[in-house]
Structure formats: structure tokens, C-alpha cells
Amino acid sequence: MSTATHAFTDSATMLRRQLRHMLRYPTLTLTAAGVPVVFLLLFVYVLGGILGSGLGGPSGGRDAYVNYVVPGVILMTAATAAQGTAISVAIDMTEGIVARFRTMAIARVSVLTGHVLGSLAQTLLSMAIVTGVALLVGFDPTAGFGEWLGVIAVLVLIIFALTWLSVALAIMAKSVAAASNMLTPLMILPMMGSGFVPTDSMPGELKWFADYQPFTPFIETLRGLLMDTPIGNNAILAIGWCTLITLGGYLWARKLYNREPTQ
């Protein structure tokens, strides 16, 4: 077999390993969905009445706010799931199993590809759960079949980017706790963008940050597809950010993984 076929079959084997973990411990998937669901309920029922009126739309109130906040909450799921990925990569790195893989004649990066592909499946599942809850509490998207396909495509790109980044951070972290902490800021980013309130309402420097950080074009693209709001150049920006983060995360993770283990 050629090296390329090896890389493919080995990655598939490692993916099966991750999927088995996921099926055996469904709590991993539920935990990733849990935090965003809690935020969704808090923001819709506790804060939504007032925040919705502040949006300035024709209807206002809680109903308008559900539709506004859901894209941000879905992206928050990408962040919580990335934290889960980081933890499972860090567990692998701190246990002997990676040393075993390294002394076997297998495609080296397959361990990481397995993690990333496994996380992709797991994150999409968590997002489906979050979206399900959103629909139950009154989320009413305008998206048709084509738009939904677009939503999934955008989400796959974003998950891919965040997962490769979290894999690299997890290898760098050297301990499970550190890996988990390192990803926490990622959960705050949707809030410091257009996820929960429009950036126009933020003070100067914060607004500048919110406008230019990657989560804002992610959220605006998603919101455009789901609620038919104007997307503008946000789709291009989102794809650009995703490509950049994926490439950077992948190359960094590969470099860290191939580096010699120190004593």
C-alpha cells in the first residue's frame, strides 16, 4: 500500500476509535450541548424580553430575541465542543497510548485527523441538539432547504478551524486541566461579537474588537442564512478566517506532534 492509502485507512481507524468513545460516553456530546442550552434559556427567558425590545425591529420582545440569539448560541456550541476535543487530545497525549502510536509504522498525523473528524461529527450532533431546543422555545427560521445546506457547510468549515486550533493548543498544554482552560476564552468570543447583542450598542474599542474578530462574520453569515438578514461581505470574511485558522492550526498541531517528546 502507498503512504497515501495508509494515511487514509489509518485516519479512518482512528476516526472509528473516536466514534466509539463518543457512543460509549454520550455525556461528552451532551455536555458540549449543555452549556449553550443553558445560555439559550437564560438569555431568552431571563433577559430576552428587554434585549428583544432593544433590537429595534417591528415585533420586538422575547420572540424577536430568540431569532436573534440562536446563531450565536450555535457557535458557542462549536466553542464548548472544541474544549471537549482539547480535553480528549490532552488525555491521549498524557497517557502512554500516543507513545505506542509513535513507535508503530502508521501515518503519524492519523491520530490527530481521527480526533478532528470525530469532533466534527460530535460537534454537529451537539449543534443539532441545541438547534432542536431552540426550535422548541420559539426559534422560527426563514431558511429553506438550500439555506440549511449552506448553514451546515459554514458550520463544518468553522468546526474544522476551531478543532484544529484546539488540537494544537491541547498538545501545547501538556496537561488535561491546562488544555481545558486554554479553550475557555473561545466561549466568550461569541458574546464579544454580534452573537447576543448588535455591535452598534457597544462602546468604542469593544465595538472595534467585536467588528473585526472572526466570530462576528461567522455569526452574521449564519444569521443571514437562517433569518434572511443581509450577509454582505461577511461570507467571504468567514471563509477567509476559517481557511486561515484551519491551516494555521493544522500546521502548528502537526509540528507540535512531530516534535520529540521531552523527558
Binding site: T9, T13, R17, R24, E95, G96, I97, R100
Partner: peptide, 24 residues
């Protein structure tokens, strides 16, 4: 190695099958 190199989340059988797959 000195430190256990098994996948704790998998069963004993699954660990062996994982190795079999990686050895093609």
C-alpha cells in the same frame, strides 16, 4: 512502555482490534 499504553475508554477486545486495524 513504562506507562500503560492502552485506550482506557475502549474494551480489551476493542484495544486489540484497534491494533489489528493499524497493522492492516
Amino acid at each position: 512502555g513504562q506507562f500503560s499504553a492502552v485506550d482506557g475508554f475502549l474494551t480489551g477486545e476493542e484495544n486489540l482490534l484497534l491494533m489489528a486495524d493499524l497493522h492492516h
